[in-house]
Design a protein around this nucleic acid. Structure first.
Length: 484
RNA sequence: GGCCCGUUGGUCAAGUGGUUAAGACUCCGCCCUCUCACGGCGGCAUCAGGAGUUCGAAUCUCCUACGGGUCACCA
């Protein structure tokens, strides 16, 4: 075990988009491999041609790459156990199934769909679990050969023991034991000679040397049958890690079908890839320490299977936003500015302002980039505002004091020859000192007059500077007018 | 319905027989402060219910309730 290389695999179906639950499974799968210096393998399970969506494979590639989940083996990069596209592996499965028939762990079944349907109806009507009634389980060699010769279509079914129990071990849930009598003789090879997912998966995982199977919780119930298959082949089963679902609320899963956001949707909404990856890692997994902000490299170090949860987690957009904010604050100034500029320019068409400073004051006030346009919408045009906005209890200002303050501030600002943050600051604070008033007495009205907003990114000084002298003076005059 | 799994604050969650039951997000208060935000400090709020086992139970057992998953020639 110590020397055995860990090999994990992410095996998505190309159905068009990457949902959050899928991506998280990929993340955990990746982390488990990398934690042990193992290999992370990508296998595309495209055998359902009806659900195949054009371009979906690229979505998988692009999403995984964007998130930093680089695979060591896969359809595009190759590897020692290819092909990595399931549809290209189709030939061999029947032989494996036939081995099982020979060893008595599987059998030919000639029942047609009509009969199966009939049986099912009766079972449902008498309220017993619908299962194959094992009609063909004990056909004689002669009967089988006869039917084969007659060209009757057949499937190959797993021969599950009728008595006893099967136990398998899950790394999260521990040992799970089920009565064999509750297990169905599931189909391994379909009439068309192709394997079912349940069979292909086991064979592929074994052939690819997968040591840890990470997958959604929906496979927990079928795992005993997989284990029986491994046993029948004489193969060592992998370690199973079944991860719980991500929910939108207590009873509904998060899913595209319910209109919930996919990974791409979140990015389009303005979330940062790193933040999304960080947040989903926290859904169903808890780090040992108190820190929750991790880069992918840090996650590799921090991750541990025993931190995985047994119960479903509800996706909380509010917390995602908070984490996104933390990532935005971590960005260096230039980086933030580059990303923020397109959003600033949604509402700011003026070119003559100091975008560097604007971006700097915006950074700690931005949790998600789409917060930006609304914050800077006063720059091009002064919004209509109510003069009641000049009243502020804590600043001890009202319409009258504000009028006085603006009248005092106007000439002071007019006198500034070089319009810089420092000079504006000096001028305004000089006025405060001269009048012997609180800062807010002057600054609150100025900020209100130049922005027309209750809240602004930055104080009066920054706002005046960003607007420029001309605009500042005009807006203050406008304020005086309104208050007079 | 059968089988499997789960249930700690509003949300994510730590916790593995003895803890003042961590931490994060949210919300509230205070500080910082020219608003807001950032940052700092503090606060509200949790063991689904019931029986047991035990000196002692969020932790072990059983029952109930609730929730999820699964029962295809889909993957």
């Amino acid at each position: 075990m110590a020397n055995e290389t860990v090999r994990t695999r992410f095996a998505p179906s190309p159905t068009g988009y990457m949902h959050i639950g899928n991506l998280r499974t990929a993340l955990f799968t990746y982390l488990i491999a990398k934690k042990s210096d193992g290999k992370f393998i990508l296998r595309i399970e495209d055998t359902d041609q009806e659900r195949y969506v054009e371009g979906a494979v690229d979505v998988i590639y692009n999403t995984l790459k964007a998130c930093g989940l680089n695979w060591d083996e896969g359809p595009d990069v190759g590897g020692p156990v290819g092909p990595y596209i399931q549809s290209e592996r189709m030939g061999m499965f029947k032989e494996y199934a036939e081995k099982l028939v020979e060893s008595g762990h599987a059998y030919y079944c000639f029942c047609d769909k009509e009969r199966l349907e009939e049986v099912r109806k009766i079972q449902v009507a008498s309220r017993i679990s619908p299962m194959y009634d094992r009609h063909c389980r004990n056909l004689s060699k002669e009967e089988i050969n006869e039917k084969l010769k007659a060209g009757i279509p057949y499937v190959i079914r797993q021969k599950v023991p009728t008595e006893g129990t099967t136990t398998f071990h899950d790394e999260i849930y521990g040992d799970i034991t089920v009565e064999n009598s509750t297990l169905d003789d599931q189909i391994l090879i379909k009439t068309d000679g192709m394997p079912t997912y349940n069979f292909a998966n086991v064979v592929d995982d074994h052939l690819m040397g997968i040591t840890h199977v990470v997958r959604g919780n929906e496979y927990l119930a079928s795992s005993p049958k997989y284990n029986l298959l491994y046993e029948a082949f004489g193969w060592t089963p992998p370690k199973y890690i079944h991860v719980e679902h991500i929910m939108k609320n207590a009873t509904e899963k998060l899913s595209k079908r319910n209109g919930d956001a996919s990974f791409n949707d979140l990015i389009e909404k303005g979330f940062m890839t790193e933040a999304v990856v960080n947040y989903i890692a926290l859904l169903g997994w808890a780090p040992k320490g108190e820190n929750e902000i991790f880069t992918i490299e840090e996650l590799i170090n921090e991750f541990s299977i025993d931190g995985l949860s047994k119960s479903p987690a509800i996706f909380d957009p509010v917390k995602l936003k908070a984490i996104n904010g933390a990532y935005i604050r971590k960005l260096d100034k230039a980086d933030f500015m580059e990303k923020a500029l397109p959003y600033i320019k949604q509402t700011v068409k003026r070119e003559d302002i100091d975008f560097a400073l604007l971006s700097e004051v915006l950074q700690p006030r931005t949790e998600i980039f789409t917060d930006i346009p609304e914050q800077v919408d006063f720059i091009d045009n002064l919004p209509e505002y109510d003069i009641a906005m000049y009243c502020h209890k804590k600043m001890k200002t009202n319409e009258e004091t504000s009028l006085i303050a603006l009248k005092e501030a106007l000439p002071v600002l007019e006198n500034i020859s070089e319009w810089t943050v420092d000079n504006i600051h000096e001028a305004l604070f000089g006025l405060v000192e001269k009048l012997g008033v609180k800062n807010g007495y002057i600054l609150w009205p100025v900020r209100t007059a130049v922005s027309g907003k209750q809240f602004t990114p930055g104080g009066a000084v920054e706002m005046c500077y960003i607007l420029g002298k001309e605009d500042t003076l005009a807006r203050i005059k406008k304020g005086i007018e309104k208050l007079s």
